[in-house]
Nucleic acid binder design. Structure first.
Lengths: 192, 192
DNA sequence: AGAAACTGAGTCATCCTTGTCTCAGTTGTG
DNA sequence: CACAACTGAGACAAGGATGACTCAGTTTCT
């Protein structure tokens, strides 16, 4: 594959993420436009719409795995890992809104998250439970709550009362998310 | 409107809820089939697909308002009202999955929840806050968390560990939801 | 019973999207 | 430089869904 072709692929994926984020059913042409390419080129890279969406999911999975590794989910003290991971995944959410939603929504027909990713998340919650930070058993439930709250925090307008006294920026949201998750899962939500 | 026409309308709405719940983009013909009617009849009642979906949302809003009234959100002790409302809305969720999701998802282009409904929910959370049951300020945030967790609890498989020791039925889910919401919003999640 | 309303079944035109293909022109790579 | 790879622009067929319309037959309501 020639260098410019690779660039094109990257631009398509990026544009697709942006366009589909606020219009999941947008025609491929809109994505092509956003990428500054012709529709035919999109078809050359991705044989079908499904293939494109699959690629987006695959990309998300890769980034997830990288994030889990960076957060040292398997070795760092669980509470530390939670905060780190929250930060990383929040960033992921911002830049991959479409793929995130698609993976969370079985009805879309999009592929779900990679089992390895799920295992990584589950490991974290299992460790949190073992450490007594949370009381809720069942990592799958914890994971679901985490992702659902992630979505809510992301949707939150900057001037929301829960963010009062903060800048309403990313940092404040991450704190809110971590606190809320722990509270939801039966831990004592230290306002730290 | 003749009596049988009214019946048809009701059957269409019911069928649409069922069909769209697990295939949001399903063609109108599938809805017509499920309703035991001809596609043309659907078009006679609802001039467009959008009109049909709007009707579903309107229906949901009505039921919401009724539920808020039944839960005595404005007068009952807030914690009691929360439990009652949780029960009612959980039931609503089960029978109106599509409209619920559509209203929660701005990207679908579907109309959002009626402001009056939002106000009703917000009132409850404001009262919970005033009573010291929860510490989170910002009713909109509370509302979002509530609905997000409602969705998660609904998705939960019957044999999930968090439901261990229960029958995994509706009752157990309602308890779990109420506890989780209170914990998430900074209250002490009494396992009552 | 009889008028009016309603329905089923079918046809039809239209729009939109997808996916394929071609061909002339541009760009990268050895 | 020269060849191969890549792209843009356009045409094209196919498929699916929507919505309008007709007409013969049934149901409701008075």
């Amino acid at each position: 594959m020639r260098a410019d072709a690779e660039r094109s692929t990257a631009r398509i994926l990026k544009a697709a993420e942006v366009v589909l984020a606020d219009e999941p059913g947008a025609p491929l042409e809109r994505i092509a436009d956003a990428a500054g390419l012709a529709r035919a080129t999109v078809h050359r890279r991705f044989s079908s719409r499904k293939a494109l969406i699959d690629a987006l999911t695959a990309q998300l999975n890769e980034r997830y795995l990288l994030g889990l590794k960076q957060a040292r989910v398997d070795s760092a003290p669980p509470l530390v890992a939670l905060h780190r991971l929250t930060e990383i995944i929040f960033e992921l959410k911002i830049n991959n809104r479409f793929a995130m939603n698609a993976a969370a929504n079985p009805a879309t027909g999009a592929p779900r998250l990679d089992p390895e990713v799920l295992n990584g998340l589950d490991l974290l919650f299992t460790r949190l439970h073992a450490a007594g930070v949370i009381t809720a058993a069942g990592p799958a439930w914890c994971r679901g709550v985490f992702l659902a709250l992630l979505h809510e925090v992301d949707q939150l307008p900057a001037d929301a009362p829960v963010l009062a006294g903060t800048d309403g920026g990313t940092g404040a949201r991450i704190d809110l998310l971590a606190r809320t998750v722990i509270g939801a899962l039966g831990g004592s939500a230290s306002p730290a």
